[in-house]
């Protein structure tokens, strides 16, 4: 449980890799104007990336085979989505989702 030299390298190395991925586009766009095609491409990034992130938590990966549904997450997603449609509030979606998941775990439905 002590802090090792490897730990230090991991923090510095991974920190640098992550920081560059985040900051580089900001520095670049300050200098250069993006071509219209790229801007058009980027307008689809939010919906595409958020959908992919949702799918990631609703599926269970089995390398070399088809992924299966994460049943507990899919079940909890139903009331969470309904809360979103009814209230249009992010907070409501999160709170309803957590409560639904606690119930699912309690009754072991997933």
């Amino acid at each position: 449980m002590s802090f090792t030299l490897t730990d230090l390298w991991v923090i510095l190395g991974c920190g640098a890799v992550t920081l560059l991925s985040r900051v580089f586009p900001f520095a670049l766009l300050k200098k250069f104007q993006l071509p219209a095609g790229v801007i058009d491409f980027l307008t689809f990034v939010p919906i595409a990336i958020m959908t992919a992130l949702c799918c990631q938590s609703l599926l269970v990966v089995h390398p070399g085979h088809w992924a299966t549904l994460n049943l507990a997450n899919c079940l909890a997603a139903i009331p969470a989505t309904l809360a979103g449609i009814l209230t249009k509030s992010l907070l409501a979606v999160v709170v309803v989702g957590i409560m639904a998941m606690a119930l699912i775990r309690y009754f072991q439905w997933g």
Binding site: T51, A80, T81, A100, M101
Partner: peptide, 16 residues
């Protein structure tokens, strides 16, 4: 306690 679902719920809300 279901807290691990908070992240998924958040993305569902954000995508909606």
């Amino acid at each position: 306690f279901g807290f691990d679902f908070a992240l998924t719920a958040m993305f569902i809300g954000l995508v909606y």
